[in-house]
Design a protein around this nucleic acid. Sequence first.
DNA 1: TCATTAAATTGTT
DNA 2: AACAATTTAATGA
Length: 240
Amino acid sequence: MSDELSLHRRRRKPTADELAGIPWLGLLQPGERLRAEEELLVGDARAGDYVCRVGRPVTYWFGVVEGLLKMNNDDADGGTMTFAGLPPGGWFGEGTAIKREPYRYNVLALRKSVVAGLPIDTFHWLLDHSLGFNRFVMNQLNERLGQFIAAREIDRLGSPDARVARSLAALFNPVLYPGVGQVLRITQQELAYLVGLSRQRVNEALASLQDLGVIRVEYGGLRVLDLPALRSSVLAPRAC
DNA sequence: TCATTAAATTGTT
DNA sequence: AACAATTTAATGA
């Protein structure tokens, strides 16, 4: 893909609406929250813009306020693994932020998005002072570990239908991505890019998932009807 | 607010 | 990959 590293992300203060979409703010004590809101910044990322890149020092802990990001893990150990997408409400980078290590992955915007950033010093201050924040981060780490394991399984799955189902289930994770809710705003083209299939194939897969009553296909998005079924994805394998 | 037009997204070959 | 059909967004009266 074209490697335009146009980091035109002018930062600004978050609006009230944007703050409302940040899940962990509600877990803080008033004093902690005041400081967090004071230091939070948001920036607009256009499609193709990198939010963070491998090797760069961690300066912020990032979260998706709006739009859709993609994390790909070009690590030395595992080769190129495309990790799941990052929908609204998702916060990432806490692992590297805690250790103050450089990023081990790239994150780029799949479409025009709004990204929030908490300065790493404030992040550490919250870790040192806020019980609610610690709970959130711990929960986050735990859930993400589960997602990494799931992502490896997805890569092994043969059936495209199953891969689409599992990837969707990951995006609908209510703990990691509380901003998503019942309806995920994603185009079939974006999902195709995320899963690594053609748009036609994704279209077919979505149709069969809809026939099973697991999701409903809507214009510009998908509605989940049965999340457990998406996860277990008891789909007829085409060939065993 | 409504009608018209353009753009985006989807379904199909 | 290309096309037609459908849905949404934008425009202006």
